[in-house]
Design a protein around this nucleic acid. Structure first.
Length: 158
DNA sequence: GCCAACGTTGGC
DNA sequence: GCCAACGTTGGC
């Protein structure tokens, strides 16, 4: 199957790309997704080796901060079972977990590409993250969009 | 802090 | 199954 590409949002106050860089094996579980559409992307469509655009959201400089890679299949998100976690879900049980996550490994840290710069690139006009009202924390990215960002905006080979 | 957009909940 | 109310997201 062809490799796919994704944009994944994280609030840097929770997990920034620098946090990812300093994590063991530069890998973290993408915990805390509590939206069915985003969950289904992880559960049903992500494959090991898929490319990830790491996006910083809800922060002074929102934008794409680098690239990462999907390095596991989806498995139950541990935070849903932890009563002390803000992501605790009392309706979820280990026998019937409701939420899953994949593991994501850092590939490259890059110059931050802000929303204004993304919007200025006509080839990216269709990106989900730029659409009005978009809130989904995981969105598919086309290979054309991926290559435009890596090659044109970062000036590196994808 | 504002507010538009959207997802979820729950009464009916 | 409808839909109003409510909660959350996230840029500004």
């Amino acid at each position: 199957m062809a490799r796919r590409y994704w944009l994944m949002k994280s609030e840097p106050s929770e997990v920034s790309i620098d946090d990812l860089a300093h994590a063991p094996a530069q890998t973290v579980p993408w915990f805390g997704v509590r939206n069915y559409q985003a969950r289904n992307f992880m559960r049903d469509e992500m494959r090991i080796g898929d490319g990830v655009l790491f996006y910083h959201s809800s922060c002074p400089q929102p934008g794409i901060a680098g690239t990462a890679e999907v390095v596991s299949a989806a498995y139950p998100d541990a935070t849903q079972f932890d009563p002390k976690s803000p992501y605790f879900d009392p309706k979820s049980t280990p026998q019937a977990p409701r939420w899953v996550n994949v593991d994501v490994k850092l590939r490259t840290r890059e110059r931050l590409i802000g929303l204004d710069e993304l919007r200025a690139e006509p080839k990216l006009a269709q990106m989900r993250v730029l659409q009005r009202g978009n809130r989904l924390s995981i969105t598919p990215v086309t290979s054309a969009q991926w290559h435009t960002i890596c090659e044109r905006l970062w000036g590196r080979s994808a």
